[in-house]
Simulated assay, not measured.
Amino acid sequence: MSTRTTPGPRERLLDAAQQLTYSHGMGVGVDTILKAANVARRSLYEHFGGKDGLIAEVLRRSSDEDAARYEKTMTAAGEDPRERLLAVFDRLAEVIAAPDFRGCRYLAADLALADPAHPGHAITRAYRRRVHGLLENELVRLGHPRPEHAAGQLQLLIDGTLAVGATRPGADLADPAASARELAERILDVGHRT
C-alpha cells in the first residue's frame, strides 16, 4: 500500500494561484494558473466554482498565514507589548527587502477586484480587522489611552510601508520601515509622556 505524497488538484490550484496572483497580480489568466497547477479546467470549477472562488480561497488561506506571521513576530519579541509592536516594523524591513516582494496582497486585491460584491473584499476586510485586533490587544496591554485609534494609526503605517516598499524599491528615500517604526514609537509613547 502506498501513501499519496503529491498534493491533489485543489491544493495544486491553491498553491499556483497563491504564487501567481502575488507575483503577477489578480489579473493573471485562468489558463496560466491551470498550466502551473497541472490540472484540468474542470478541477477549477469542481473545487472553487470558478476563478472568483479560487481567488477568495487564496485570500483566505493567505490571510491565515499572514496573521500567523504577525503573531509569530510579536511572540518572538518577548512579553513587552511595546517591543512586540515595534518588532512588526522590524519584520516589515525584512519583508520589503526580499527580492520577491511585490507589496501588500490585500491592497492589490482590493484595487484589482473591481466588483464591490466580489467575495475577496470580505476576506480582505476580515484580515484587516484581525490585524487591527492583534495591534489593539498589545496597545491595551501597554496601557495606551486610545488603543483602538492607535491600532488604526499603526495599521496605516504598516499599509504605507508595504505600499512604498513595493512602488519605490531602492529609491533615494528614507527606509520606509525605519521611518514607520520611528512614527510608531511616537504613537506608542503618547500615553507615557510626563
Rank of each mutant, 00 (worst) to 15 (best):
L157H: 02
I55M: 01
P176K: 03
L134Q: 14
P176F: 02
R82F: 12
D52F: 02
A87E: 06
E148W: 03
G133D: 14
L157M: 02
L139K: 12
A97H: 05
I158Q: 08
A151H: 07
A112R: 06
V164P: 03
A114L: 14
A93K: 13
R61K: 08
E57Q: 13
L85N: 13
L92R: 05
H118F: 09
L162I: 00
L44A: 05
E57W: 00
D110W: 09
R168S: 09
A109F: 11
G143L: 09
P81I: 03
Y70L: 12
I158M: 12
G165T: 02
A108R: 14
A174N: 04
T75E: 15
V140K: 11
L134Y: 13
D100I: 10
H121G: 09
A97G: 15
A166I: 01
M74T: 05
A77E: 14
D172Y: 00
G170H: 02
R42F: 01
D100G: 11
D115M: 04
A122F: 13
G120W: 11
D66T: 14
G165D: 04
G78D: 10
G78Y: 11
A56Q: 07
D115Q: 03
L44I: 06
G165Y: 04
A87S: 11
R69Y: 15
T167R: 07
M74R: 07
E46F: 13
A108Y: 04
H144M: 03
A93C: 01
A97T: 03
A151F: 10
R82N: 06
R91D: 12
R91C: 00
P145G: 10
Q155F: 10
R141A: 12
F89E: 14
F101K: 13
D100N: 15
A109L: 12
G53P: 00
F48W: 01
L111Y: 07
A126D: 14
L135N: 11
T75C: 00
P81S: 07
T167W: 05
L134M: 13
H47P: 00
H47N: 09
R61P: 00
Y70Q: 07
V88R: 15
A68V: 10
L113I: 08
C104Y: 06
I55D: 01
T124Y: 14
L135S: 13
D172F: 05
G50A: 04
L111E: 15
A178I: 07
R168T: 06
T73S: 04
C104G: 06
E57C: 04
L111F: 10
P119L: 11
L59I: 01
A87N: 06
F101N: 13
A126K: 13
D90G: 14
R105L: 15
A114I: 05
R82P: 08
D80Y: 03
R181N: 02
R69P: 05
E138Y: 07
P145W: 14
V95G: 12
E148N: 03
A76M: 07
T161H: 07
V140T: 08
L173I: 09
H149S: 01
R82H: 12
H121F: 13
L86Q: 11
R69K: 15
A171F: 10
E79A: 15
G53S: 03
E71Q: 15
Y45V: 05
L135C: 10
K51N: 01
T167F: 09
A174V: 05
A126H: 13
L156S: 14
V164W: 07
D100L: 15
A177K: 02
H118C: 08
R125V: 10
C104P: 09
A68C: 11
R91E: 10
